[in-house]
Design a protein around this nucleic acid. Structure first.
Lengths: 227, 227
DNA sequence: TGAATGCTTCGATTAACATCGAACTATGAG
DNA sequence: CTCATAGTTCGATGTTAATCGAAGCATTCA
């Protein structure tokens, strides 16, 4: 055989616990410095540096220097997607790191996945937008319809600015907790930002949990009910 | 942090070259014996036995004994999905195992992915069925519409038998070469079988390549053009 | 200029694990 | 029953790579 891409190389990169911790930490979407990632992974700065070099070499991370800091983030949405796929397998095999507790419940309801909203609320938003014809699915591609563009503009999102960027506007991302898709890409990011701007939601510091206020939850429910 | 499923465990399972070879070999969908997998991975039977035990323990493989043989296959479509996601990353990072050659071209055009058709022809089939209203997408779920049921029955597929099985009928699977979806699940399997039955396509032995005859290619083109 | 901070490189240590030979169990064939 | 084949278990070996202390750059700040 020996055909197709070399999967073991990438998988073994993810397979080290320290590196896996770094990658999952970066799933929140924020860029983190080498020191922060070292702490996240529970290793010293030296070993973290070695790990980060390998992850970047392997194309999983993107890095940018800023002064004497070095910021790392995931290289692409695809990396996040692959990580979530692995999480699905892990959850399925019952290898949860912790027994399902209150944090886990919150995580399943609403969490951040590389800067966009995932979990139950994320998939509900996605399904609603598809059902109302705001998003059109074609195979794996997702595109915003004219009606959808109107909808998000009314919600206060600067669509023109998003479209000017090079990153894809819409993309779907499979959810490990829900086994369904949620909206990724620039628009997904913008929507979560807007939720935070309006005070509907707030990220719980140092976790992937997104906490909705009572008012925010009501607003969200109405938003996906009829726009 | 330390939240969410334990991803490193699964990834390190896939991260060993011998195990990765076994898993990719099983992507063709056929169940293989321990000896066959040992040869596929290029290791002796003893080490293969150890690897297979770990893979099964980790929930990636399913095994059934038959006489003095032990047959292994992937545990689920989800495993195949995760593997293809990793292939996407690997291909993206330029870590192709071999430089793109003739085999690679054939692989991108039509290959088998856990017993269903993938590659360019796989995604074209999927897109066509969505466009004609034979498949309906709802988030990550795919379902067969009444019109679609009529279509596949006319094509000679015993739908009742498929529906009787426990495995899901339709499922979408992301394609590493095309970055779009193709049809997985029982129906995807049945369609590929039917292509072979009609002499349209033939699997190239010991590879994932699917070769279409000239007649088969014509029939396929007509099938996805108007049914 | 000197001190402090953030990160990298080097070297040595250690732990994990893939590998295989050899011995063992189980199933099937003659 | 005897032999061959398929697979497992055990133990020894060798390699890989994760880890961290210490020293070395680079950047910023005073």
């Amino acid at each position: 055989m020996r055909e197709g891409p070399d999967i073991a190389r990438i998988a073994s990169l993810i397979g080290d616990p320290a590196r896996a911790n770094m990658l999952t930490a970066l799933l929140v979407g924020k860029a983190l410095t080498a020191s922060e990632l070292a702490q996240e992974a529970g290793v010293t700065l030296q070993t973290a540096s070695s790990h980060l070099g390998k992850l970047e070499q392997g194309g999983l991370l993107r890095q940018r220097k800023q002064g004497r800091h070095k910021y790392f983030s995931l290289a692409s949405d695809e990396v996040a997607h692959a990580l979530e796929a692995l999480m699905g397998l892990a959850a399925n095999a019952g290898h949860l790191r912790t027994r399902p507790g209150p944090a886990d419940v919150a995580l399943r309801e609403a969490r951040v996945c590389y800067n966009h909203l995932a979990g139950d609320m994320g998939t509900r938003l996605f399904d609603s937008m598809v059902a109302r014809g705001f998003l059109r699915l074609r195979g794996e591609d997702v595109s915003l319809t004219p009606a959808g563009a109107h909808f998000v503009r009314c919600y206060g999102i600067d669509l023109a600015r998003l479209e000017a960027k090079r990153a894809p506007l819409c993309r779907q991302c499979l959810d490990w907790s829900e086994r369904r898709s949620h909206l990724a890409g620039g628009l997904g990011r913008a929507l979560l930002e807007r939720f935070e701007e309006l005070g509907w939601a707030k990220r719980k510091p140092d976790t992937r949990i997104v906490e909705f206020s009572r008012r925010g939850r009501a607003g969200f429910d109405e938003l996906i009910a009829r726009g």
